[in-house]
Amino acid sequence: MFYSIGRYILLLKAVFKKPEKFNIYFKEVMFQMNYIGMGSLGLISIISTFVGAVMTLQIAFQLNSDLIPKTIIGSVNRDSSILELSPTISALVLAGKIGSSISSEIGTMRVSEQIDALEIMGINAPGYLILPKLIGGITMVPVLVIIAMFLSITGGYIGGTLSGAVTGSDYILGITSDFNPYTITVALVKAFVFGFIITTVAAYQGFYVRGGALEVAQASTKAVVVSCITILAADYFVTQLLL
């Protein structure tokens, strides 16, 4: 484990070396931002909307009491969506979608000796291959999380009103009352950390793969598993630190 952590840190050190040509990196960063952001927008939108709707129904079921005002359903769903559901579920989904793609892409380049060719030409392969993905991840994952927050709360409104679990006026009153903007800051910090984890862990698994197509597939699977575990651990530590 310590060997892997040390090699991971050394890889990050190589990633942040001064790039050879900024214009080449800029084009690749724009491509990765489009791929990570726009390429994942539809999936994140669908998942967030349904998660918000389901959460509203479950909260209404748990708080089914005449002594508890219905507005609590909206406020609980709002805080749960912002603090935990939107950043964490979005990150886990992106770890499966983006992480496996990054790992398999870099792993294929490694086993086909394309990375060796870059290094022979004097190009900083870790920086050229990983840095644009890293910048795209830490930039677009928070954007996707913001969208997920909005859609999750909207999905809660739709699911609650259609099922009759809560009226629209009670739900809106709940999500607007006693709102603490600091919760959004915590969620965005989580999203930034998760974006860093997703891209770097997947790139690490792909960069050091050895063998052939089977090993590339195994590295992609391992990248998703390690990323998900690391995301959940980071979620705990960031929450403990900021709340």
Rank of each mutant, 00 (worst) to 15 (best):
Met1Pro: 10
Gly6Asn: 11
Ile9Tyr: 15
Leu10Asp: 12
Leu11Cys: 09
Leu11Pro: 12
Lys13Ile: 10
Lys17Ala: 14
Lys18Phe: 11
Glu20Phe: 07
Lys21Gly: 01
Tyr25Met: 15
Val29Trp: 08
Met30Asp: 03
Met33Val: 11
Ile36His: 13
Ser40Asn: 12
Ile46Ser: 09
Val51Asn: 04
Val51Cys: 11
Gly52Ser: 02
Ala53Pro: 07
Val54His: 01
Thr56Glu: 03
Leu57Lys: 02
Gln62Ala: 11
Asn64Phe: 10
Pro69Trp: 00
Thr71Met: 11
Ile72Phe: 15
Asn77Val: 14
Asn77Ser: 09
Ile82Asp: 11
Ser86Ile: 01
Ala91Arg: 02
Leu92Ile: 13
Leu94Asn: 09
Ile98His: 06
Gly99Arg: 01
Ile102Ala: 08
Ile106Arg: 03
Ser112Lys: 13
Gln114Lys: 12
Gln114Tyr: 00
Asp116Val: 00
Leu118Asp: 02
Glu119Tyr: 08
Met121Gln: 12
Met121Trp: 03
Ile123Asp: 10
Ile123Ser: 11
Asn124Trp: 05
Ala125Arg: 04
Ala125Met: 06
Gly127Asn: 15
Leu129Asp: 08
Leu134Arg: 01
Ile135Ala: 10
Gly136Asn: 06
Gly137Glu: 02
Val141Lys: 06
Ala148Glu: 12
Ser152Met: 01
Thr154Asp: 05
Gly156Trp: 05
Gly156Asn: 11
Tyr157Cys: 01
Tyr157Met: 12
Ser163His: 02
Val166Glu: 01
Thr167Ala: 10
Ser169Gly: 00
Tyr171Cys: 04
Ile172His: 00
Ile172Asp: 01
Gly174Ile: 08
Gly174His: 04
Thr176Val: 05
Thr176Met: 09
Thr176Gln: 14
Phe179His: 03
Asn180Leu: 06
Thr183Phe: 10
Ile184Gly: 04
Ala191Val: 03
Phe196Cys: 12
Thr200Asn: 14
Thr200Pro: 08
Val201Asn: 07
Ala202Gln: 05
Tyr204Ile: 05
Tyr204Thr: 04
Gly206His: 08
Phe207Trp: 05
Tyr208Gly: 03
Ala217Cys: 07
Ala219Val: 06
Ser220Thr: 13
Thr221Cys: 07
Lys222Arg: 14
Val225Met: 13
Ile229Tyr: 00
Ala233Glu: 09
Leu241Phe: 15
